[in-house]
Simulated assay, not measured.
Amino acid sequence: MACVRLIILAVLAFAAPVSAQDMSAFKTGPVFEGFGPHAPVEGMGPVPADTEFSHAFDVAVPAEEGKNSRGFESAARFINMHVAAGVDPDNIRVAVVVHGKASMDLLSDEAWAAKGRDGANPSGAMIREMLDHGVRFILCGQSGIAYGITQDDLIPGVETALSAMTAHALLQQRGYTVNPF
Rank of each mutant, 00 (worst) to 15 (best):
G100L: 07
I138H: 03
F35R: 01
T160E: 09
F53S: 04
Q142R: 02
I155D: 00
A146G: 10
M44Y: 02
A125W: 04
R93K: 11
S74G: 12
A56Q: 03
G124A: 06
L170Q: 09
Q151L: 12
Q173Y: 11
L131I: 07
H99S: 13
V94D: 00
A164Y: 03
A56R: 00
L171W: 03
A164F: 05
I7F: 07
K101E: 13
P89R: 11
D153I: 11
S103N: 06
D152W: 07
Y147I: 01
F78C: 06
M1L: 15
Q142D: 00
M104K: 08
N68H: 13
H55K: 13
G175Y: 04
S54E: 02
N179A: 15
A49S: 10
H82I: 07
N80G: 12
L139F: 07
R128W: 05
P40K: 08
V83E: 02
A161E: 00
F35W: 02
M1T: 10
N179G: 08
V61M: 09
N80Y: 06
I149K: 00
G124N: 02
E110T: 15
N91F: 02
G29D: 05
M81P: 03
H55L: 08
D50E: 10
A39N: 00
V61F: 03
T166Y: 04
F57K: 09
A114S: 15
F72T: 03
R128G: 14
E73Y: 05
I127R: 01
F35D: 04
V18M: 08
D88G: 08
F57C: 13
A125C: 13
G134D: 10
C140I: 05
A10R: 14
G116H: 08
A63S: 14
R77P: 03
E65Y: 03
I7M: 07
E129Q: 14
A84G: 10
A85Y: 10
E42P: 08
M130N: 06
S19F: 11
V47R: 02
A125Y: 05
M23D: 10
D105T: 09
R136E: 15
A114W: 10
V83Y: 09
Y176M: 01
G43Q: 07
V98E: 11
A113S: 14
T160L: 10
E110L: 14
V59F: 01
F137C: 11
C140E: 01
D88Y: 12
P122E: 00
K67W: 08
E33P: 02
A113D: 07
L171S: 11
E52P: 12
W112T: 01
R5W: 13
P62F: 06
D152P: 12
L162G: 14
F32W: 09
A16Y: 07
Q151P: 12
D153C: 08
L131D: 01
H133C: 05
M126E: 01
G45D: 10
I145K: 09
G66V: 09
A49N: 01
N80L: 13
N179K: 10
V47F: 04
I155F: 05
R128F: 12
A120E: 11
E52R: 15
N68L: 15
V97E: 02
P180R: 02
F57R: 12
G100V: 06
E52S: 11
V158T: 11
C3K: 11
